[in-house]
């Protein structure tokens, strides 16, 4: 019974994540801000997903 609750809560949070991610992707960036990138040289350190893009660009 407890395991069922655990799976339900984890599944609900995963669903929330998926919904918010798609909703976030659909929301357009305010005009004038399309080409903004965070001004930090070591940002790949902070975000693992961003790091992959940085590494790809550096090996091109």
């Amino acid at each position: 019974m407890q395991v069922l609750f655990a799976i339900v809560i984890a599944g609900a949070l995963l669903g929330l994540n998926a919904w918010l991610y798609t909703a976030n992707k659909k929301t357009p960036v305010p005009e004038g801000c399309e080409n903004l990138k965070p001004d930090c040289t070591g940002c790949g350190i902070t975000d693992c997903a961003l790091r992959k893009k940085e590494e790809e660009q550096s090996t091109l």
Partner: peptide, 10 residues
């Protein structure tokens, strides 16, 4: 693809 990061995190 939308959900791959949260799944890996779980």
């Amino acid at each position: 693809d939308e959900i791959h990061i949260p799944v890996y995190i779980v």
